[in-house]
Structure formats: structure tokens, C-alpha cells
Amino acid sequence: MLVVDDNTNAADAMAAYLSSENIDCRVAYGGAEAIADAVDNKPHVILMDISMPECNGFQASLTIRRDERTSHIAILAHTALDEAEVRRHLADSEFDGYCQKGQSPEKLLALMETFLV
């Protein structure tokens, strides 16, 4: 599992929570770092923030999706953005799922578990 968020506190907190749920995870603090990690480590799932400077989650996800070395990785959008905007990108196959920030951890875990088999 790769947690991607430019807010280091949010990324580290999410990684700590997932670790407490026995999910092995790493952290990337931006889109470019997420792309490099995806190529190097090929996580099963990426939990991708969207609003990040330089390389946002849409750009990073599209790059990961178009690379044959990483196209198989499940990418879940995890953002506070308007749901309609993110769902449009779901339809474009950039993301495999979506969970809005602030929703219950159980809902996020349930979504993630469908991809962590």
C-alpha cells in the first residue's frame, strides 16, 4: 500500500492508522514521488490525494495508469474535492475507487480491502 499526500502529517497519520490495521504501507509526499515509488516498488494499492502542488493526483494517476510497468496497480482517490469532479476521472479509468476525506475509517478500509487480495 502506498499513501500519497503532500500534507506530511496527514500522510504519516494515515500510514500509522493503516499499519495499526496490519496493512503494510509506505508514504510518498507528492505525485512525482508516488510515480517513482510505483515503478520501483509496485504496491498493490495507492491511496492518492488529489490536490498537490507540482504533480497533482490526477496527473500522477494518469502517468501510473499509462505505464505498462504500473498500469495494474489499483489507485484510490482520497480527497476533499467535490465528488462529481473525482467521479468524472473514475469514469476515465484514472482511479479504481474513491473515498472522500473525513469519511469513517471503516468505509475506507472496506474499499481498500477489495483491492488488497
Rank of each mutant, 00 (worst) to 15 (best):
M1A: 15
V86N: 08
V27M: 07
S51N: 13
S71N: 08
A11G: 05
V3W: 05
A16W: 06
A32S: 13
L76H: 02
L90V: 11
A15P: 13
D37E: 13
I64R: 00
H78N: 11
A32D: 11
H44L: 13
D37R: 00
G97C: 12
L90S: 04
A60F: 09
E106C: 07
P43G: 04
S93N: 11
N22P: 05
G102I: 09
A60G: 06
A36P: 02
A38T: 01
V27E: 09
D6R: 03
I64F: 10
E85I: 14
D37S: 08
D92Y: 08
D92E: 14
G97E: 11
L76R: 07
A16Q: 04
L62K: 12
I50H: 10
R87T: 15
A74V: 00
I75W: 01
F115A: 02
S71R: 00
A34Q: 04
A15L: 12
A84G: 06
H72G: 06
F95V: 01
G30W: 01
A110Q: 15
V86P: 12
Y17D: 01
L116D: 15
K107M: 14
M14W: 02
L108R: 05
R65N: 12
D5C: 12
L108D: 03
D5W: 07
E33Y: 04
A38Y: 00
Q103K: 03
D82C: 01
L2Y: 02
P53E: 06
A91L: 13
T114G: 02
A13C: 10
A11Q: 10
M14F: 04
G102D: 12
S61M: 11
A77C: 02
V86L: 11
E106L: 13
P105M: 15
R88M: 10
E83P: 13
A80D: 10
A80G: 15
S104H: 10
Y98D: 00
T8L: 11
G102Q: 03
F58T: 07
G31A: 01
R66P: 03
C55W: 00
Y98K: 09
S104K: 03
A15M: 14
A80V: 14
N9H: 15
E94A: 14
N41R: 05
C55T: 15
D96C: 04
A60I: 04
L109C: 09
A77I: 08
G31W: 02
I46E: 06
D92Q: 15
A36I: 04
N7W: 08
M48Y: 08
H44F: 09
D49Q: 00
G30T: 05
Q100L: 13
M112S: 00
G102V: 05
A74F: 10
F115G: 09
S104V: 13
D82P: 07
Y98P: 11
E83Y: 01
S104G: 15
M48N: 02
A28M: 02
H72L: 08
R69W: 01
A28P: 00
C55P: 06
I75E: 06
A74G: 02
A10Y: 04
C99H: 05
A91H: 08
A16K: 10
L2M: 07
L81I: 04
A10H: 05
D82N: 13
M112L: 15
E54Q: 08
D24N: 14
N56D: 15
